[in-house]
Amino acid sequence: MVLKIENLSVSYETDIEVVHAVNDISFSIEKGETLGLVGETGAGKTTTALSIMGLLPERTARVRSGRIEFQENDLLALSEREMQHIRGDKISMIFQDPMTALNPVLTVGEQIAEALILHNTDGYTQKEIEARVEETLELVGIPKERKKDYPYQFSGGMRQRVVIAIALVCNPDLLIADEPTTALDVTIQAQILSMICDLQRKYGTSVIMITHDLGVVAETCDKVGIIYAGEMVEYGTLYDIFEGDEHHPYTVGLFGSIPNLKENARRLHPIEGLMPDPTNLPEGCSFSPRCKRCMEICMKKKPAVYENNGHQIRCHLYDAGMQKAVSENRKEAGEDGR
């Protein structure tokens, strides 16, 4: 097991309010596996990633509870100095926006070399580092002659390749990709995704793919976690989430919201309402105000996790009378044209 997160809760605290960004999230990743974290803006996906990286803003963020175990180390217990050895070397991150993630006054070669120089445990010489930078550039599909170029000389897709090169140069064991293709066009997105997959297969890297695009998830991931208002509402294999019979109502709503290329439904089935305010989460299940199948208990008590063969759902529908819930869900799924 590469990474194991148990009951992680993170909040941002200011004098005025407390934002409950991540609430009791648990998951784990095996070597070479890809986990997709899916959710809407403000669901807590990026906060989860930043807490693994130890990059939460110091002043406001507070990890209220939980454990992040990475290769038998508790990351939350490490000092900043120890964390620096891991960050960028064993765990690295691809940031969302390639336009702002790079330093505009350093050449891309210098920026890629930076990670190597900081984590130079094997005592590479200057020449070896240069060679490694060139090798990495070629790996991500940029001619090595361009290492002396500045970020502004690259297009969006090429810049994202540079960001990926920086993340990969130290051969990390865990790669966190935070919406790596959201800012890119579809044809470039396809190139970048297939590159990430190829590299993963080559080096056995574990990947956390953070995205809101279910298409991207279907193409790259082995396991999927659906996050809503800081909670993991459903977690399972790709097959469980896309083809399984049991679902959290939010997952059903998410699938109903995307236009399907294969079918000709004239109307989408959006989820009514908005995400709850994270400073003021509803009592009970946080999805209850928008849920079509909300029951009385949903507004009072937080649902427990229901598990079936590793497929986890956090919903009261599965408390008791499981079979009934399943058959109803099937029916609803049929109506939604899924």
Partner: peptide
């Protein structure tokens, strides 16, 4: 054709599928 092939489709069939990709950029 290339544009259509590049759309990620949310279904299990597209899992780890190899595709013809358009090379280069605009």
């Amino acid at each position: 054709k290339a544009l259509l092939a590049a759309i990620p489709i949310p279904s299990v069939e597209s899992c780890h599928k190899r595709r013809e990709l358009l090379q280069g950029e605009v």
